[in-house]
Design a protein around this nucleic acid. Structure first.
Lengths: 233, 233
DNA sequence: TTAGCCTATATGTATGCACATAAACTTGTC
DNA sequence: GACAAGTTTATGTGCATACATATAGGCTAA
């Protein structure tokens, strides 16, 4: 076993990872402090700091001032998954993208949406329904509410040539959001739109976004059966 | 509008975010270089660098040497989602965790698993099936293969008192992995185990892990209907 | 015109130093 | 013995500087 050269924070990082992986440092163990490691590796403390911070971001190390750095006992692995723009996602797979606007109208928002967007009772919001196609086959059904007090311009947007998602990315931004993933059974309406059997299992993404505390939009994306979301770990 | 004080990379970060969000710097725009920003903010270039790197990690900025830093045209939002240990996930919701081992045996792996683990034809692997309960109700069905050439000790592990997941976290680590999420219909067997109607929509997580290129384990987690995976954006 | 080389430039990273900050630990006081 | 105050210590961060590295864009030569 040769001692490989440590230069650069990435090398420090992989050396640390090795020690964790090889159980030289076991889960729960306190590891040496930055200064000592820096001396051992013959680099500056800042370099060790960078490496340790990077690992801590993945959840494999826990760091606390004064208490030091320890190997996480029950590492909650963090996976970063990219939420793509649907058109991109389809085009990257070399499929032909198409898009159809089903409806776009001002409507009184239902209670759930009102609560989520903190709208007054009877307040209207902009409801958009659309389908995205990959190679001519329905790919995802988009069911969206847009808060017109936050994004008034949506009412006059040309949503026939540009999907709401893309329009919003261009014309509105958000500061906060949350996203949820579930499995559902396709109800008759969605089944019809996606052209699948009623009762098929569909993958659903629900996303809400806010800008400075004001609701921007709330979408439910229902993917055609077979959709698979994946990422490296 | 008061010019707020810029001190610390977090302040720089939020100022930059403001400028993006307020469209002072529009998608596609090239922003000033680090040195100029450092001068403007009255801080060191390293501080600006730290802030810009952090933002770039979220996907809102794109950086390339010599080319500079620009606001991402089609920001692919990155969400980091935590893959929890099931017991933790359940206990954090203040539910009572329970676990039942259904089977654990050496078996010839099917073709798909063999291919994924790069096993020889006829090679055996350790197959584990188990159910995790929350408040006495089936929560998730775990269907797992473990590579015995990578993790031989699994054969003698006490999987009645500790779930395979926890055992593996303690006794084996991994260097790479991938994870996929899909929606499926519960087949009769799974439906029976989870005590739900056949044909219910279930959320499925499939995860494969490797250590130094050698397959460690491959698991399919089938969650009871209603499961919702969520995260901030 | 084009292919290949060169160079200026913006980001990437390392270093040594300093000080800030949180929190575990010690000491002191009632 | 319990609580408060002070001390110590490991990480968190900032700065100035230096050099590394990728590469866009210009220059040169075939």
């Amino acid at each position: 076993m040769t001692v490989r050269e440590i230069n650069g924070w990435q090398a420090v990082q992989s050396e640390i990872l090795n020690r964790i992986q090889s159980r030289q440092w076991k889960p729960g163990d306190l590891i040496p402090n930055e200064a000592d490691l820096a001396q051992e590796f013959g680099c500056a403390r800042a370099t060790v700091n960078r490496a340790l911070r990077a690992i801590a971001e993945t959840g494999l190390l826990e760091r606390r001032r004064k208490a030091g750095t320890r190997v996480t006992l029950h590492p909650v692995r963090r996976a970063t998954l990219s939420i793509p723009i649907i058109r991109q996602e389809i085009e990257e797979r070399n499929h032909v993208y198409a898009y159809t606007l089903l409806s776009a109208e001002l409507k009184v928002a239902p209670a759930g949406t009102r609560a989520q967007m903190r709208l007054d009772q009877g307040a209207r919001a902009f409801k958009i329904q659309a389908v995205h196609f990959a190679d001519g086959k329905p790919y995802v059904f988009e069911d969206r509410w847009v808060n017109i007090s936050t994004v008034p311009a949506i009412r006059t947007a040309d949503l026939k040539s540009m999907s709401p998602n893309e329009w919003l990315v261009r014309h509105a931004s958000f500061t906060d959001g949350d996203i949820a993933f579930t499995a559902e059974l396709a109800d008759p309406k969605v089944a019809g739109i996606l052209n699948v059997d009623q009762g098929a299992a569909v993958f659903v993404i629900e996303r809400n976004t806010w800008i400075d505390g004001k609701a921007v939009t709330s979408v439910k994306l229902t993917f055609a059966p077979g959709y698979r979301m994946h990422t490296a770990l």
